[in-house]
Design a protein around this nucleic acid. Structure first.
Length: 297
DNA sequence: ATCATGACCTGTTAGC
DNA sequence: TGCTAACAGGTCATGA
């Protein structure tokens, strides 16, 4: 599911429920996801209040009052849903059983209480590529992946110069460069393809070639920086892209998939005005790249 | 160091 | 209908 816009959509859905809530109990239904859960995970989280839910790249950070920060990554197939305690079972006029609404691949339950009402935030992840970790608040931790994340593509720091600098000297193709979270934090396969199309740049171009030299100043870096920002903002506004299971907190679907220019559109006509090209699919670093060879160079 | 590849795990879909 | 292969939104360890 989740690249930056989907993770941001998840964050916006969970924040009103989690922020200010107390985590009464944390239940793990298996010992690991992609990695083992942290030692004493449940004990270190239970009883604490959530100060904030923020995002860095594709990571969610749940900061606890006088406690550690819970770092969460959704991998390929992770999702959260919120369930109010009580409802279902009471409606049916019988006792509510915990197992009633258990779904396949539910791995973590956060039982929370906020303003006197109880609810449960459930993490579900069929492929288990997601993970959760704890970050002690005192150490910034340059050794963790979160600490090594690159440019925030929506922040002010994301300028043509910054982009040119972080791609300078790279011989790897632009597409791979955009997927490197240590350079830019948040793009995945879909939005990397979309941003390159929007900027009119070939995914095959060695990344370092958009930075100069003198004859071609940072014009292309500026176009790419703008395209990245623009495509991510439009996707967030649409609630992300729903290919299989991404949902907003209220259960509705993201709809940015209807706005794809290239992703999963191989064989279709390029939609750029005055371009007669056809979208193609190729393999780069083991992943599908969709692009228009006619207008991306 | 930089880059490409395969591995991780489950589910869905296209093709025979 | 059933089987198989290929593919999927991400990241990491490996080896060239």
């Amino acid at each position: 599911m989740p690249e930056l816009p989907e993770v941001e959509t998840v964050r916006r859905g969970l924040a009103p429920v989690l922020e200010g809530a107390t985590i009464r109990r944390l239940q793990l239904r298996r010992p690991d996801l992609r990695y083992p859960f942290p030692a004493d995970f449940a004990a270190r989280v239970a009883g604490r209040r959530v100060r904030s839910l923020s995002r860095r790249g594709k990571y969610l950070l749940m900061e606890l009052e006088s406690g550690p920060c819970v770092v969460m990554h959704l991998g390929m197939s992770g999702s959260f849903r919120i369930e109010m305690s009580g409802m279902g079972g009471e409606k049916l006029g019988r006792m509510y059983h915990e197992t009633d609404r258990l779904e396949r691949h539910d791995h973590v339950f956060f039982d929370i209480c906020r303003d006197g009402s109880e609810s449960r935030v459930i993490y579900n992840d069929p492929r288990r590529f997601g993970f959760m970790a704890l970050l002690s608040s005192n150490e910034p931790d340059e050794t963790s992946p979160v600490g090594r994340l690159g440019l925030d593509p929506l922040g002010n720091a994301m300028s043509a110069d910054a982009l040119a600098q972080c791609f300078d000297g790279m011989t790897a193709p632009l597409k791979s460069a955009l997927l490197d979270q240590r350079r830019i934090a948040g793009l995945g396969n879909i939005y990397a393809c979309e941003a390159l199309w929007q900027a009119g740049l070939s995914p095959l171009r060695p990344a370092g070639t958009i930075c100069g030299p003198a004859d071609r100043p940072a014009r292309e870096a500026a176009a790419l920086a703008e395209a990245i920002r623009e495509v991510l903002q439009r996707a967030i506004a649409a609630g992300g892209s729903t290919l299989r299971d991404h949902r907003l907190a209220d259960g509705s679907l993201g709809y940015f998939q209807h706005s794809f220019a290239v992703y999963d559109r191989a064989g279709h006509a390029c939609i750029r005005p005055h371009c007669n090209g056809t979208i193609e699919r190729m393999r780069q670093a083991g992943r599908s790249t969709f692009w228009c060879p006619a207008c991306q160079s």
